[in-house]
Amino acid sequence: MELSRGGVDVVLIDAALAVPDPVKFTRSVRTRFPSAGLLFTGAANPQMAAALAAAGALGVMRAVNGGDDLLVAFTHAVVLARQRLKNTTAPAKRQRPRPAAAVLSDREFQILTGLTEGKRNAEIAGDLLVSEDTVKTHAKGLYRKLGARDRAHAVAIAFRTGLVA
């Protein structure tokens, strides 16, 4: 049986085959194979369907008048959805936070570029045709946005994160 090997994402089972107690069957499968989903088919009253869902089943589908093709298609859809959920919930590799260039205004980025070139505030102001006080104001804003303590720290962050090359 595939389930015993652990290679099954979804178990599609007729509720009539999970006798004598479909709820106990559901709990047993969920305990032994927590990643496998159970989907019941067949005639189940609303109370039984609720009990199965509470025990961990994905649900109960009623197949009427040869609805086997529909059940198979639905099961394939559930399998695909479960696989995608597994792929998106995998723990992401931790990385150092990277400040995005979009966080800085164009002017702040221009000033940061001047800082990384080792220019003094007066030189940056001359290049940008602004006052030295304007450079200082923008520099304070970019320090705050980058989480930098000072000029040297801002330059280090810029190089370390690839904000400037």
Rank of each mutant, 00 (worst) to 15 (best):
S105R: 01
P91I: 04
A139C: 06
A102S: 14
R151P: 08
P99K: 01
H76C: 07
Q47N: 13
K86Q: 12
G147I: 08
E132N: 03
A44S: 04
R84Q: 14
D68C: 13
G59D: 10
P91W: 01
T134K: 13
R62L: 12
D69M: 15
Q110I: 08
A152Y: 03
V60E: 02
A55N: 00
A92Q: 12
A100N: 10
K136Y: 14
D127F: 07
R98G: 03
A100T: 10
G147K: 00
A53K: 13
V130T: 06
R82E: 12
A57I: 06
G59Y: 07
A73F: 07
Y143M: 05
K86G: 13
A81K: 11
T89Y: 10
T75P: 09
E132M: 04
D127Q: 11
A50S: 14
A90D: 05
E123Y: 07
D68T: 14
T116F: 06
R107W: 05
T41G: 03
E117F: 02
P91S: 00
E123C: 04
D68W: 15
N45D: 14
L38F: 03
L71M: 04
N121K: 10
P46F: 04
T89S: 11
G141E: 01
G114V: 04
V72T: 15
Q95T: 10
D127G: 10
A122T: 07
D133Q: 14
D127P: 09
A92R: 11
G67K: 08
S105P: 01
T113N: 09
A73M: 06
A81C: 05
L146D: 01
V60Q: 02
